[in-house]
Amino acid sequence: MEDIKYVFEVEKDDFVRAGETSSKIKKTLRELGIDSSIIRKISIATYEAEMNIVIHSLGGQIVLEITPGTIKITASDRGPGIADVELAMKEGYSTASDRVREMGFGAGMGLPNMKKCSDRFCVTSSEGKGTYIVIEVDLKAGE
């Protein structure tokens, strides 16, 4: 399989289109014949990352990269950044608005969920700049 790279822009506060990027990524992985349990992990982690960009950021992008052994999702945004990443990683901690909570998000499960779905996970953030998340899931031998 040749290396593949796709870049998707994600707008802030666009709750109508929220999830479209994750849906496109899921479709792409399906078309490539990736194992369904791997697709599920990537889809859930990407969707959480996409919702975080829509809910919390000033906008950003999600990049899908597929190399022979690994699927990599990079979610980056233009700010405002997370003040305390360690605290944000705790299940149940959230700064989401009531509007977001009414939609079933903002339960403080996003980052822990992403980590749970990944083989390798990294989040870095600086206040005023932005957040950078890398999610990697290994492909099984033969894929």
Binding site: F15, V16, A18, G19, S22, S23, K26, S36, R40, S43, I44, T46, Y47, M51, M103, G104, F105
Partner: peptide, 16 residues
Amino acid sequence: TGLTNQQVVRTAEMAD
């Protein structure tokens, strides 16, 4: 669920 927004369907899609 008692939620009826688009994210419910998106969630179902992502979680198969």
